[in-house]
């Protein structure tokens, strides 16, 4: 039994310096996850900001040129979110790689962008939900004290919304981490693809695939635990 394990370990990791493939894959998985999460947050904040400004302008029946531009932007953002949520990520990744960024040499960067753009749609919904969870009376109180719309959002609404947004954002990052396992579709060697490459060389699927699964699990489980702790901390500050 132990001999079998040892043999599998050597075959999978040691022989021909195969561990280097795993390291490379792990590195790419982390690069893509982190970059995509950052891109996603930037896009998400932007989209939700446009949305809440446009919604406000609509409520107030504003008809200025600026307000109309906002509405158009908001419409575009709505379509973007619908498309990102309504089509499979694998297809989006392939479209990004082979059509939109067709000749682009660095496929890791293409993956970062594809996952980031997809994540942005989900992040925008997370932020929108977080903002909506804050009682509208808070906005009215801010406005009645003469705070501008942006000022109210910044000083009153967002600090309260962040308690709901932050844990959900971390969960979104975890989701991105798992989703990056399809990078192999466009020949980027991420952790999954690395395992697959080694598997095809060693012909022993058990060891490679389960090793890869364990690495993902440790990452995801660790992150989830951290989110849980964050959630409890935020809940505590609610009680004062």
């Amino acid at each position: 039994m132990f001999e079998l394990f040892k043999e599998g370990f050597i075959k999978t990791f040691i022989r021909d310096n195969r561990y280097k493939v795993f390291v490379e894959g792990f590195k790419n998985t982390m690069i893509i996850t982190i970059t995509a999460a950052i891109i996603g947050i930037i896009i998400g904040v932007f989209v939700s900001l446009i949305h809440s400004l446009a919604e406000n302008a609509r409520d107030k029946h504003q008809t200025t040129f600026g307000a109309k531009c906002l509405m158009v932007f908001d419409k575009i953002c709505t379509i973007y979110v619908a498309v990102m949520r309504g089509t499979p990520l694998a297809i989006q990744l392939m479209i990004m790689t082979f059509i939109i960024m067709g000749g682009f040499p660095n496929k890791v960067i293409v993956c970062c962008i594809a996952f980031g753009v997809n994540s942005g749609a989900y992040v925008s919904e997370v932020i929108r939900g977080g903002i909506a969870s804050v009682d509208y009376g808070q906005t009215e109180a801010g406005r009645s004290l003469g705070l501008s719309q942006i000022g109210t959002l910044r000083l009153i609404v967002l600090p309260q919304a962040i308690k709901n947004i932050l844990p959900a954002l971390c969960n979104e990052a975890i989701a991105v981490l798992k989703e990056t396992s399809i990078c192999g579709l466009v020949s980027v060697v991420d952790l999954t693809r690395a395992g697959d490459l080694i598997r095809s060389r060693t012909m022993s699927p058990y060891f490679t695939l389960i090793s890869v699964a364990i690495v993902y699990f440790i990452l995801v489980y660790g992150l989830s635990k951290a989110v849980g702790r964050l959630e409890r901390r935020l809940a505590q500050s609610d009680r004062h």
Binding site: D135, G137, Q138, E140, A141, G142, S144, I156, Q160
Partner: peptide
């Protein structure tokens, strides 16, 4: 100044 039914303190 405006005062609301639900206080709306921050």
């Amino acid at each position: 100044g405006m005062v609301f039914q639900q206080f709306n303190l921050f």
